[in-house]
Design a binder for these strands. Structure first.
Lengths: 253, 253
DNA sequence: CGTACTATTGATAGATATCAACGCTGGTGG
DNA sequence: CCACCAGCGTTGATATCTATCAATAGTACG
């Protein structure tokens, strides 16, 4: 089912009643294929439907008057693009596909029927609040950490988020972005990102190459990035995710 | 009434029915005085009540393992500290009073009764979404703009937010923070903040001294900071706030 | 086989941080 | 009342970090 990925994402925060799962499965969906590099939603518009990423990778971004671009969030499978169209008038940022994406369009009526289900509504709200917490962490990361640590922290976060949706295999996951996009994410120049990545690789922490991230030593990476996972609020539900899964043995992990 | 400031904040996004205003006025409130520098809520706790700032100035902040501090939001009168305690288990950041604050404690039951009123619930959700949009803007600001522009942008934002709660008199408002706190907000060193402030003053854009901000030329300040107010989503409701109020004439403003 | 885009590297320039010193202010205790 | 102290603001000198520039190479793609 297309919405499996949404269920997986929501259940990371808490179990979902069987009837709600059935409800999700019964929805008829209209999906759309978006090519890498294409915009899914553009700033200034007010989308008619709500968009949900099913596969691929997308990002929220802002373009500055000086021509620079800031990537302010990554959207993984199961993430909503624009759940706020109900409340706010116009998009204050754009959303673009970093890799080819499958996106489903959920009519507003569908969303409203989802919100009528308390368990679903609660988990949706929770996901929104975690998005906000993640932004606070990004402000902290970009504002206070030097280049290599900044990148290490981002990689830790993405690693955990990818694990939630079962996208990590053998300490490796697809991260189909260029160094240029990474630079726009962490607020560094391309060249400096390149050199910082080399440092992280030399430290035997992580290798990023060809749109693929190989975590060599997650504990080291966490230490380098000063990473604490509490802001993702997975602790209570999925303690196994919070603890490391690396080569080091952790029987209760 | 203590909650006047909340009403003012909410009505910045849309009118509130008379009966909802009456409802707010009828609430019995327990207020608390917090000294400057004291924590209102600390990371790791799960507050019993929801806190709302009535007067003064507070901030959300995070402390890093390397001892640095990041200020990730300012809380003005009418802002909630921890509306998310219903959903998330523990605070992932702390909240501290920058100046002496009056804070009211709203029992969870009170919040629930507020959420039962559609107009109030809608405006609360809207305020939450604007908080998130503001964080995206901060990520952009800190990540992409050089020092002076970064500070100019922050000042523009605070100027608009202060106007919403009628805290701007004569192009001037109280901003009771130190340069050190400003540095932790924009991700710069104290010394560099000091020098950047001097530049902004020399440009005749803004003067920050003694916890007070005097806007000399708001249009210039906006230009320096590359400021676009759309992310605050005041456009539809309070267009007069969005356009300039400065010496330059703008007949259709 | 060009033509982009991406990655990489070294050299240099520019921005920001750190260090150090000083003055100012408000409070505090003698 | 005065001496002292702590926090804040200010300034200049220096160190470090990061950006920019330039060149090269690899890769995908038409």
């Amino acid at each position: 089912m297309l919405l499996d990925v949404l269920r997986k994402r929501l259940e990371a925060f808490g179990a979902l009643p069987q009837e709600d799962v059935a409800f999700l499965n019964a929805l008829s969906l209209q999906s759309r294929l978006v090519k890498a590099g294409a915009d899914i939603i553009r700033e200034g518009t007010n989308p008619e439907d709500v968009h949900l990423v099913i596969s691929g990778l997308a990002c929220r971004y802002k373009t500055l008057q000086n021509g620079k671009r800031a990537i302010v969030a990554y959207l993984l499978p199961g993430d909503f693009c624009d759940l706020h169209v109900f409340i706010l008038q116009a998009m204050d940022h754009s959303i673009s596909a970093l890799a080819e994406c499958i996106v489903v369009k959920l009519p507003r009526a569908t969303i409203l029927s989802m919100l009528e289900r308390p368990a679903v509504a609660r988990l949706l709200l929770m996901a929104t609040l975690v998005d906000e917490a993640t932004l606070r962490e990004w402000v902290t990361n970009i504002g206070q950490r030097p280049a290599s640590e900044r990148i290490a922290h981002l990689f830790c976060e993405l690693y955990l988020r990818m694990r939630v949706i079962d996208a990590v295999k053998d300490h490796t996951f697809e991260l189909p972005i260029t160094q240029s996009e990474l630079a726009d994410t962490v607020g560094l120049s391309i060249v400096h990102v390149n050199k910082s990545l080399r440092k992280l690789r030399a430290a035997n922490a992580v290798t990023f190459k060809g749109g693929r991230l190989v975590i060599t030593d997650i504990e080291l990476l966490k230490k380098l990035g000063g990473f604490k996972s509490n802001y993702l609020h997975l602790d209570d539900v999925l303690p196994s995710l919070v603890l490391d899964s690396g080569a080091t043995t952790r029987p209760n992990g």
